[in-house]
C-alpha cells in the first residue's frame, strides 16, 4: 500500500473515532440525571481522561520513535555517495535536469536548487502519485535521495506556487532498467 493510502486510512479511522465519541455523547445529551448519577459520571469521565492521556502518550512516544529513528531526510552537509547524481535547477517556469535519465535499482541523489523564487520538486510515479519531494530554494541546494524500483517515465512537477506558469512547470525523468554488470 502506498504511503498516501496509509495516511488516508489512519486519518479516516482517527476522525471516525472522534466522530463516534461525539455521536455517543450527543445521543446521551438529552437525558438528565440526578445528582448521584452525575457525580458518578464525573468520576467516570476523570478515569476515562486518564486512560486517554495514557493512550495518546503511548502513541506519541512510539510514533515519534518509529517515524524519526531513521531520519527521513538525508544529511545535507556531507557527501551522500549515491551511485547517480542528478542536478535539478528550477526557474520560472522550467526545469533543467542533468542528466535527464537515470537507472533503476540504484540510489539517485537529486541536488535541487532554484535561480529565482521558491519552487518545489515533486517526483510523480507513472501512475500519478507523489513519490517524494523537496523545495527548490534560491541560494540553497537541497539534497534528496531516491531509488527507483521500476523503469518508466516519471514526471517532475513544480509543487510550490511560483507565479502564473506554476501549473505547466513540469518535465519528465526517464528511468531505464539497470544493465546487469
Amino acid at each position: 500500500m502506498i504511503l498516501q493510502n496509509i495516511v488516508w486510512t489512519i486519518a479516516l479511522v482517527g476522525m471516525g473515532l472522534i466522530a463516534l465519541g461525539f455521536i455517543y455523547v450527543i445521543s446521551q445529551a438529552g437525558r438528565t440525571v440526578d445528582e448521584a448519577a452525575s457525580i458518578e459520571s464525573a468520576r467516570t469521565s476523570g478515569v476515562l481522561r486518564k486512560w486517554l492521556f495514557a493512550a495518546l502518550l503511548v502513541i506519541f512516544v512510539a510514533g515519534s520513535w518509529a517515524t524519526l529513528r531513521r531520519f527521513p531526510i538525508p544529511p545535507q552537509n556531507r557527501a551522500l555517495d549515491a551511485g547517480q547524481v542528478v542536478d535539478v535547477v528550477a526557474s520560472q517556469w522550467f526545469w533543467q535536469v542533468t542528466p535527464p535519465s537515470v537507472r533503476s535499482g540504484s540510489t539517485v541523489e537529486f541536488r535541487v536548487t532554484s535561480t529565482d523564487v521558491n519552487h518545489g520538486l515533486a517526483i510523480y510515479s507513472p501512475e500519478g502519485h507523489i513519490l517524494i519531494q523537496t523545495q527548490a530554494m534560491p541560494g540553497y541546494t537541497n539534497k534528496l535521495l531516491y531509488t527507483f524500483d521500476q523503469p518508466g517515465v516519471y514526471t517532475l512537477q513544480c509543487l510550490e506556487f511560483c507565479g502564473v506558469g506554476h501549473g505547466p512547470m513540469k518535465t519528465t525523468l526517464r528511468v531505464v532498467a539497470a544493465i546487469a554488470e
Binding site: A11, G14, P72, A122, I130
Partner: peptide
C-alpha cells in the same frame, strides 16, 4: 468542537516528516 478535534488528525499526519514528503503542498 468536532471540527477542531477531527481537523487536527489530518494536520498531525501532515506534520509528520515522513508523510510530509508525499503530502506537502497537495490538497491535503
Amino acid at each position: 468542537m468536532f471540527g477542531w478535534a477531527a481537523g487536527i488528525v489530518p494536520a498531525i499526519l501532515d506534520g509528520t516528516i515522513r508523510n510530509n514528503l508525499v503530502m506537502h503542498n497537495t490538497q491535503w
